[in-house]
Amino acid sequence: MSIILDKLNYVYSPGTAYEKQALGDIDLVIGDGEFIGLIGHTGSGKSTLIQHLNGLVKATGGGVYYNGADIYDPDYNLKELRTKVGLVFQYPEHQLFETTVLRDVQFGPKNLGLTPLEIDLRAYEALKQVGIPDELIDASPFELSGGQKRRVAIAGVLAMKPEVLVLDEPTAGLDPKGRDEILDQIEKIHDEQHITVILVSHSMEDVAKYVGRIIVMNHGRVAFDDTPENVFAHYKELEKIGLAAPQVTYAMHALQEHGISVRTDVTTVEEAKNAVLAAFRGWQR
């Protein structure tokens, strides 16, 4: 189970005055069960890249292989791929259209031509996974709060039972608590369902807290691809491409520069706390 991107290139409006290389020579292997953070400033090619993963956008060069099969093979079933690689767009609540929450979540499974029983089962399960209480399933999706709408929209993709879940900024516009709730739920789904999750985010703090691997995009190319510790160690290069490391990483480097020696390969509050406490106990001795 893996996605392989091989020398992937994508050029907008080729052959016209508006020609623009959106992706250049992307080589990536996305393994089974990974939790990946995809970061990059606006226009770095992140959104274009994820639309290649389920065949919504066709590369102008190179190939995409899903579980070893070439998705650009004329016989390849792209519709099936779209169910395997679930893509949650930015502000997904804007795609809700049905009269009730349940019916909206059933839309995906219905398109798969499943039996009514299976459609129901999947919809209920998906709604449960995102934490929508039972009393809301017959409500109109448009009466829900912003955070609830977003979860229903995510459930709409989960009900397809994807093997890979790609989320484009799932927390945009939510308040801090709403943000943590959604990310915790996604982490839980990743752990319990053993699916691959790719999280596109602008928040370095969020990415550092949840993912095991970070892919940094810049000008349509992969700039870094490593663990959070290793990627954020390059915080100075990240700044040059309009990004940053989590605030605690800076705090540790600043301590180090002031002659207080602490571990600097720190990306979360928890790790920073342990690093400083270790140094503090050193002074007390």
């Binding site: 605030q247 605690v248 705090a251 706390k273 400083v276 406490l277």
Partner: peptide
């Protein structure tokens, strides 16, 4: 984050002041 870190450190026994708002203040306090 740095405010939360200072708060957590204080709870763990480090006598840091309340309401640290920036990395500079944090480094200075340490």
């Amino acid at each position: 984050q740095v405010t939360e870190l200072s708060y957590e450190l204080k709870r763990a026994g480090m006598p840091l002041p309340d309401g640290i708002l920036s990395v500079e203040e944090f480094v200075e306090a340490c």
